[in-house]
């Protein structure tokens, strides 16, 4: 089974981002960038399937700037075999390459690479869209197992346990299919130095959006990006009695 893993270069989850003063977007200058955490989980899951003898090859793909090669190398250090960067200078967080355009590009890549399974993140932590996997699945006419916390592969049958609002749901899909990851699927490994060195030698192909003929013109224009309403800290109370008094008589919520 061949697995394709789309990953995204995003601001590191530890960074508290700042809105640009002109309201045009987020200030990403000199900010630490990483693999979107859900995508790291996707790479790890693919590598585990390979280690279990269920997958033969893992190809990672990203649409992003030249520097997104760093994220491909990170995925390779975890165990991906090969990488494709679709290089673009258009921003990939807001007002640039949108989930629909990403899904269309991924569709073209799926048609060239013919994977049996695509594992990707449920959500990117910058645009928080939670769309691309479902869109890709629709464009390909494949089944989708979203928000996955457990994946069992048995030949071309996938048993997917999904985290839903009411608890858990298990569905059965026939490959080829799309699986999107949730936090409980696995804990990605830390790449060891020899793996990081090995990753540098793996094949990384650089492509242009025009190779796939997808129009990246955004459908949503950014009118403004602003700070959320600030919530100022309140007071510290010395004990439980004071807390109860405040909640009853000041906040009037109990």
């Amino acid at each position: 089974m061949k697995i394709l893993v789309p990953i995204k270069r995003v601001v590191d989850y530890n960074v508290k981002v700042r809105v640009k003063s002109d309201g045009s977007g987020i200030d990403l200058a000199n900010v630490k960038m990483s693999v979107n955490p859900f995508d790291e989980i996707a790479v790890e899951e693919a590598v585990r399937l390979k280690e279990a003898g269920k997958a033969s090859e893992i190809v990672v793909v990203t649409i992003g700037p030249e520097k997104a090669q760093e994220q491909i190398r990170t995925a390779m250090a975890i165990g991906a075999d090969r990488g494709i960067l679709v290089k673009t200078d258009t921003p990939i967080d807001l007002g640039g390459v949108e989930p629909l355009a990403v899904a269309k590009t991924l569709k073209a890549i799926v048609e060239q690479e013919s994977p049996d399974l695509v594992i990707m993140g449920k959500q990117s932590i910058d645009d928080d869209s939670n769309q691309t996997g479902q869109m890709l699945s629709a464009l390909l006419g494949w089944a989708q197992g979203t928000f996955t916390s457990k994946l069992e592969v048995d030949g071309d049958t996938l048993k997917v346990t999904r985290e839903i609002d009411g608890g858990l749901e298990t569905v059965s899909l026939k490959a080829p299919a799309i699986v999107t990851t949730d936090l409980r699927l696995n804990v990605p490994r830390f790449a060891k130095l020899p793996d990081i060195m090995k990753a540098k030698k793996k094949e990384l192909e650089i492509k242009e959006p025009s190779d796939y003929g997808v129009d990246f013109t955004p459908r949503l224009s950014i009118v403004e990006v602003s700070d959320p309403p600030v919530r100022s800290g309140g007071i510290k109370v010395p004990d439980v009695d004071t807390l109860i008094d405040k909640l009853k008589n000041e906040a009037k919520v109990i």
Partner: peptide, 8 residues
């Protein structure tokens, strides 16, 4: 394309 198995 997809079949429901169970819910918890």
């Amino acid at each position: 394309l997809s079949t429901f198995v169970s819910a918890e």
